[in-house]
Amino acid sequence: MNKLFTFSLGQTALLLCLLLAAPLSNGQTIAFIMGSQNGAKLQSLDVRALQHIFLRKSTLNTQGNAWIPINLTAETPLRRVVTQKILHKSTSELERYWYEMYFDGISPPYVLASEEAAVRFVIDTPGALGYVLACHVDKRVQVVFELEVENNSALSCATH
């Protein structure tokens, strides 16, 4: 019985590994981007730093310049993923949070209509920080953080 059990466990583990590996291999990457102004290498960021920047808790970067975070429109699947994975807040929690900030004269990030608009904006604006699918990154921008997410059919490289 024991031998049979060990064998089954090994098989199960193998199967699990294969199942877990499958979505990872098909995962997608969201790139947080800034303009390559002057070609200078920009600081890398982590999830916590991004959370603070997009919640406007952190307004200055280490060089003393203003952060200008850029969001996509609320119905964009990419924004929904970023809200869930970076901000860790539900829609109602986020709504309430921004009204509290409004009371202190602080506005949410500016909203742009497309990933291409976000790319153009960060290129032109020092301190601007946006996000696009990694497949939309080109030489004009620098990637300061990559967020790996599970495969999501709504996140398509076909749209830009």
Binding site: G64, N65, A66, I68, W98, Y99, Y102, S107, P108, Y110, L112, A117, R120, F121, D124, T125, P126, G127
Partner: peptide
């Protein structure tokens, strides 16, 4: 302190509840 750069493509706007 540097003045904050102009933001191309962003027009003045009003949003109810956000000013």
């Amino acid at each position: 302190s540097a003045p904050i750069m102009a933001k191309n493509g962003l027009e003045p706007s009003y949003q109810w509840g956000r000013g």
